[in-house]
Design a protein around this nucleic acid. Sequence first.
DNA 1: TTGTTTATAAACCAAATAGTTTAGTACAAT
DNA 2: ATTGTACTAAACTATTTGGTTTATAAACAA
Lengths: 108, 108
Amino acid sequence: MQTQQLDRTFAALADPTRRAILMRLMDGDALLKDLAEPFDMSVPAVGKHLKVLEEAGLVSRRRDAQRRPCHLEAEPLKIAVDWLEEYRQFWEARYQQLDALLAEKNKE
Amino acid sequence: MQTQQLDRTFAALADPTRRAILMRLMDGDALLKDLAEPFDMSVPAVGKHLKVLEEAGLVSRRRDAQRRPCHLEAEPLKIAVDWLEEYRQFWEARYQQLDALLAEKNKE
DNA sequence: TTGTTTATAAACCAAATAGTTTAGTACAAT
DNA sequence: ATTGTACTAAACTATTTGGTTTATAAACAA
């Protein structure tokens, strides 16, 4: 199943540091050193966040001498959106007077 | 900021029990007792999951005598999707040969 | 060879999470 | 008045999370 994939993806996204890292990687690959720089946090701490992102498949790393550049992988995000899209009818209904219909359903 | 809102929403979604509860509430409001029934878990345990969902604003509860029926609130899901949508260009690009462009950016 | 850069490992800690059981409250129904 | 139903509170426990510091490794540069 992809339920564990969703677990890991959503858990990875539940932290502001990790979301900021993903944002940053939208502008291009980056080193741990540089990713860590904007945060008031040690390099190993950011390294751990990176591991969480890697294990969720949101980030991949290649080798370049002693460096390990990080690359954004969007596939798990796509899966997460797909899951959330199922609820779209719900919030779209709100703007379309379908509330009455749902309220009726809840009377049972 | 809505960063804490995102924290709580994604954290709430990172658990399969909680996602199942949300799914279930798509079919209409429900009592804790009934929500708990399908799970191999005590009622208080499911009650705690419900509290997480409530604190994320994903579920609201009204009063009905000794019952406290749960209702799905989709707004935080919408906010989560909005955040994720920023990455859509990324996974759509993959299917449009824009990878070359990104690769070039990463050479710097 | 010595030092510098980048990353990781290990040991540690505090706080949060996810569950349990037991007990109690609030209301309804008989 | 008593019993049953739905929920909540409290106390406890084990595991995970998110950070620290110190030390080490690996590759490069002088």
